[in-house]
Structures are given as structure tokens and as C-alpha cells.
Amino acid sequence: MNTLDAVDRALINTLQDGLPIEARPFAALAAELGLDEETLVERLQALAARGLVFRIGPLYNAERFGGALTLAALHAPEATYEAIAERVNRHPEVAHNYRREHHLNMWFVVAAETPHRLAEVLAEIETETGCRVFDFSREAEFHVDLRFPV
């Protein structure tokens, strides 16, 4: 973290704002930073190798193509927490899973191709873990901005 130089920071900050959808999306930024494209791409590769950069890609409004996404939670007893997390995470539809401080101590995001499939996955998890799964699907969205300035 402390070893990010000014170019790394500019890359991370600028590319979090968005990447142009054009054949050479890094060309303009490279020119602005006084780099050639190849050097910029190598920088990105290095950031990815250090585990700082996750991926370059889209954030969808999944409902617009019929997809479904929800936040779900369950209470896993301490003694079986790890095994339950492993069961939950085995589903490819589970995008991420965080342990949080509450009686409901496992919070995970599930994405599926259709709302029907999403409901099936939640039911499967309930059956496999024996834990009641709470589906906190969203009713309204006020803000989505997952940018982290460095």
C-alpha cells in the first residue's frame, strides 16, 4: 500500500471512474501520464499481481437483462461456522461472503440468471446448512459508488 507511486495512484483513481469503451482504452490515459500503453498495461499487471486490483469490468443493472441479485444473511453457530461458510461459498452464484458482528453473522451476495434460479439457490443453501436464510432483496436504491480513492 505504501509503495504506490504517483503513477499507480493516478491509474487506480482514474480507472475506477471508468474505462472508455473503445479499441485502445488506455491510450489517452497513458498519454496523459506520459507513459506508453505497454508500460501502463504492465503497471496494471503489477497491481493485479500484488492483489490490489480485482478486475476491470462492468457493474450491471442486472434486472435489465432479467438477472437477479440479492443480499442474504443467516446465523451460523460458532461451532459449525467454517463448515457452513464453505457450503455457502461452494455455490458459484455466491459472489462474496462476509462475516459480520451480529447474531446474523454471515452476509453474502447471490447473483443468478433469473429470479427463479436465485430463489432456488437460497432454498438450496437453507437445506444444506439447516440455517434459515434471510433474503434482504433491495426495494430501492439511492446510491451506488464503489470507488476508493488512493
Binding site: 475506477q16 486490483v53 476491470i56 469490468g57 462492468p58 457493474l59 443493472n61 435489465r64 476508493f148
Partner: peptide, 10 residues
């Protein structure tokens, strides 16, 4: 359909 297309960080 795509709300943002860019870098996602850890």
C-alpha cells in the same frame, strides 16, 4: 444496463 465500466479494487 452497465452502470459503470471500470477498475474494481480490493
Amino acid at each position: 444496463l452497465i452502470r459503470r465500466f471500470g477498475l474494481v479494487v480490493h
